[in-house]
């Protein structure tokens, strides 16, 4: 299975990764190899196998609707690169364009 350079660019963009031209070439080759390897599974006939989305044989695990104490805002923000008035401070989000 071949992963094109454009597909590598698209996936990198979705993952917010900056990749150089050489990396794009290298990743395209490497990811293609990985996909081909995993693609071996397609050789198996799975038409009679139930799809597995979870490896655990569990279902219906719930918690009761009970409020528990939250973290103090100081702790919440402790790892934030920037903060202001108990908010996370992030670069200006532009939501509009005309």
């Amino acid at each position: 299975m071949k992963l094109s350079k454009e597909e590598v660019e698209h996936v990198a963009k979705l993952a917010r990764l900056a990749v150089s031209e050489e990396e794009k070439e290298a990743f395209s080759r490497q990811l293609s190899e990985i996909l081909t390897y995993v693609g071996k599974l397609n050789e198996l006939d799975t038409s009679k196998v139930e799809p597995t989305s979870h490896v655990l044989d569990l279902s219906n695990i719930f918690r009761d609707d009970v409020v528990r104490e939250s973290l103090p805002p100081a702790d919440v923000l402790a790892n934030a690169p920037d903060r202001e008035n108990n908010h996370f401070r992030v670069p200006k989000i532009i939501e509009e364009r005309e």
């Binding site: 920037d82 202001e84 008035n85 908010h87 996370f88 401070r89 992030v90 670069p91 200006k92 989000i93 939501e95």
Partner: peptide, 11 residues
């Protein structure tokens, strides 16, 4: 965003 020039706040 209100009243903020260069940044946004997240709650």
């Amino acid at each position: 965003h209100e009243g903020l020039e260069a940044a946004s706040h997240v709650d």
